[in-house]
Structure formats: structure tokens, C-alpha cells
């Protein structure tokens, strides 16, 4: 005759075996997933690395300047075109701003605000 205690133990063992079985499979599948994600991450990292090299290659100053020459009507900044922010008042910009160009006013406020803490 089987006693209830033994029954409980057998039940526990079976339950544990089943649980272990499922955990094992779950762990395996999670591991596979991790490995796949890892592989993908590595592939992406390598791709980013290669793209960085290409980005740097495409951004050669030599190439940029020839592109700028071809497509933009811009020239190098002459020293006279540069001015310190605190001397902005000597330019006609504030007057233009006073005449009502709001964007210009905002810009001016920001520039002057940054230089006068």
C-alpha cells in the first residue's frame, strides 16, 4: 500500500522533472535568441564601422570644397565679415530688427544673450 507521504514525494519529483524539462527548453530557446541578437548586433556594429569609414571618406574636405564650388555660390569668409557679438550694435542689424523682423530680433537676442552672462 502506498502511503500519502510517498505519493506527495513522487508527485513533487514528477512535477520538478517536468518543470526542469520546460525550463531547459526555455533556456535553450532564450540562449538561441541571445546568440541571434548578439550576431545581429555584431553585424550592425561592423556595418556602422564600415559606414563611419565611408562617411569620413565622403566628407573629405577636398571633395566637400569641390562640391561647394559646383553647387553653392558661397565664398570664404573675409576677416571684415566677422565681428564680435558685443560689437553687434555698430551694425545695421539692430535697426532692421527694430523695424519689425521678429526672427531677426529673436536671433539678435539669443546671440547677445549668450555673450553677456
Amino acid at each position: 500500500m502506498i502511503r500519502p507521504g510517498v505519493l506527495v514525494w513522487i508527485g513533487a519529483i514528477v512535477l520538478m522533472a517536468i518543470t526542469l524539462f520546460f525550463i531547459t527548453y526555455e533556456v535553450q530557446s532564450v540562449e538561441k535568441e541571445v546568440a541571434a541578437l548578439n550576431r545581429e548586433a555584431i553585424a550592425q556594429e561592423e556595418a556602422i564601422h564600415v559606414l563611419r569609414a565611408e562617411w569620413s571618406y565622403l566628407n573629405r574636405p577636398e571633395r566637400l570644397s569641390s562640391l561647394a564650388e559646383r553647387h553653392l555660390a558661397l565664398q570664404s569668409v573675409a576677416p571684415g565679415q566677422l565681428i564680435a557679438a558685443q560689437h553687434l550694435d555698430s551694425l545695421p542689424v539692430p535697426k532692421l530688427a527694430a523695424q519689425g523682423d521678429e526672427r531677426l530680433q529673436d536671433l539678435l537676442k539669443r546671440v547677445v544673450g549668450e555673450t553677456e552672462p
Binding site: L20, V27, E31, A35, A41
Partner: peptide, 22 residues
């Protein structure tokens, strides 16, 4: 079931993400 499996999986993929083996 849980841990050793993980190590095998890791050793087969070679290296972990975030370490570009250059």
C-alpha cells in the same frame, strides 16, 4: 540545464556585441 547551455551558446557565437574585435 540553465547555465552550461548558456556558456556553450556564447562560445559558439565567438564574441559579444560591443567589442568590435579589431
Amino acid at each position: 540545464a540553465v547555465n552550461d547551455e548558456a556558456e556553450i551558446a556564447r562560445s559558439t557565437t565567438g564574441r559579444e556585441a560591443g567589442t568590435l574585435g579589431l
